[in-house]
Simulated assay, not measured.
Amino acid sequence: MAMTAVARETVFALRRQIAKIEGTLPERLEAPAGSSLDAADVTANTDVTIVRRGIAAATQDAFLRTGAERLDAALSGGLPKAALSEIHGTETRDAGAVAGFALSLVSLILKQGPRLPVLWIGTTEIFREAGFPYAGGLHACFGIEPEQLLFSEVPRLVDALWVAEEAARMTALAAVILEIRGSPQRLDLTATRRLHARAQSAGRPVFLLRQAAEAEPTAAPVRLILSSAPAAPRSTIAGPLAGSIGRPAFTVSIGKSRTALPGQFTLEWNPDEHAFEERRTEDSVAVVPASGRRKDIAAATGAVLAFPTVGSPAPGDQPSRPQRPAHLSSRRAG
Rank of each mutant, 00 (worst) to 15 (best):
V106D: 02
P117K: 00
A140V: 13
T309L: 11
R258G: 11
E278P: 07
A229F: 03
D283T: 08
D272A: 06
L79K: 00
L37I: 15
G263Y: 14
M170A: 09
P80Q: 05
A95R: 15
S228E: 14
S257P: 05
P117E: 13
L305H: 10
L187E: 10
S329G: 08
L224Y: 02
W269C: 14
P248L: 01
A298Q: 08
T301M: 04
T236Q: 04
A74H: 06
P217H: 09
G89D: 01
P146W: 08
M3D: 15
A83I: 14
T301L: 03
A74W: 00
P114D: 09
R247G: 07
F250N: 02
R204P: 12
E268T: 15
A31L: 14
A62K: 02
L149D: 00
K256F: 06
T251C: 08
R198E: 04
A135L: 04
V98Y: 07
T251Q: 14
P325C: 04
I55E: 06
A83W: 13
A242P: 05
A31W: 05
E129S: 12
I237F: 09
F101T: 14
R15I: 04
S183Q: 12
L328R: 13
A197E: 07
G67Q: 11
E145P: 07
L138N: 05
P230E: 14
R52C: 06
G100R: 12
G243S: 06
L29M: 10
S227Y: 01
A97C: 03
D47G: 08
A83H: 13
L173Q: 07
G255Y: 12
A229I: 00
A300V: 10
T92Q: 03
A44I: 03
Q148R: 06
G302K: 05
A229C: 04
E214N: 12
